[in-house]
């Protein structure tokens, strides 16, 4: 299987130019792998697509890094980049929602938690959406739902394959019912794409949980996951509290879902582009 034969690390050195967006990774020259504790040279890690060369941990990456990794260089054209969140409910917890939005915009360098647009994967034109965990845990509020819906309808109108890379803690609490309704809205748009014979490739990355998993993320014609990603409906902590017992090893990982029959393939980040291109050739 491809996911097993994929190289754990590629023969790249720090001289290779990093593929990642450097603004999104403001840390220093060196970084420590959260998986194995290895100290890694940042540029080499970026050149290795932010996968630890030692333990193969697929680290979380920003939306712009994902775009840069996934699409042919310079091919991306953003859609709906100007959409930003309202505060329709006047939501205040420990902080006011507008302040949380501003802080997230500053720290992520993005206006919202999802980047959408068109681009090419190995020469094949696609509509792509990528979620950014650094923006309020990649949560889906009205903007994320709206951008996914528009992207889906764009794919439908132009006969293009749709790729959504999920990375999210779920629906955004600060927009409450309106966030919840984005689950219905995006799923309804995907029903239309499905009826028109459009291809939707759903890529699940660490983590994909809650209302995102329980809507568009699980509706792919093909569902791909990166290795060892946390994927589930309820969070492990909530489950543990509910059933009052320890969770089995590897619970809610990509491998667990593959075993349970809910995803099609586990694909190493280094093979993602070629896998997507191949799938498009079969079904796009």
């Amino acid at each position: 299987m491809a996911e097993q034969s994929a190289p754990a690390s590629r023969e790249r050195t720090w001289e290779d130019e990093g593929l990642g967006d450097k603004r999104a990774v403001p840390e220093g020259l060196w970084t420590q792998c959260e998986g194995c504790g290895e100290t890694l040279f940042r540029k080499a890690l970026e050149a290795n697509l932010m996968v630890c060369p030692k333990c193969d941990l697929h680290m979380r990456i920003s939306g712009s890094q994902r775009i840069a990794q996934l699409l042919d260089e310079g091919s991306f054209e953003a859609m709906d980049a100007g959409l930003t969140a309202n505060d329709p409910l006047g939501f205040v917890d420990m902080k006011a929602y507008p302040d949380r939005i501003k802080a997230a915009q500053r720290s992520s360098g993005q206006p919202e938690g999802l980047i959408s647009g068109t681009g090419f994967v190995k020469g094949r034109k696609v509509v792509v959406c990528v979620m950014d965990f650094s923006f309020l845990a990649g949560s889906m509020g009205s903007v994320v739902g709206e951008k996914i819906t528009r992207a889906t309808l764009h794919a439908l109108e132009h006969g293009l394959p749709l790729i959504i890379v999920s990375c999210s803690g779920g629906a955004r609490m600060q927009e409450s019912g309106l966030s919840l309704m984005q689950m219905a809205k995006t799923s309804a748009a995907l029903a239309r794409l499905d009826e028109a014979g459009g291809l939707f490739i759903s890529v699940l990355t660490d983590p994909t949980t809650g209302g995102v998993t329980a809507s568009f993320a699980m509706l792919g014609d093909v569902i791909i996951a990166e290795p060892k990603a946390l994927i589930g409906f309820a969070g492990p902590r909530v489950i543990k509290q509910t059933i009052r017992q320890d969770l089995p090893d590897g619970f809610q990982t990509s491998e667990f879902l593959l075993n349970a029959g809910f995803i099609d393939r586990i694909v190493h980040r280094s093979a993602l582009r070629s896998e997507i291109a191949r799938l498009i050739d079969f079904a796009g």
């Binding site: 799923s187 309804a188 809507s215 509910t242 059933i243």
Partner: peptide
């Protein structure tokens, strides 16, 4: 929806997602 081991194993998220669609 129930948060449990079996409900995750049997695809809680998938079941809800498919219903929405």
């Amino acid at each position: 929806a129930y948060p449990g081991i079996e409900s995750e194993e049997r695809g809680q998220a998938e079941a809800i997602a498919v219903n929405l669609r």
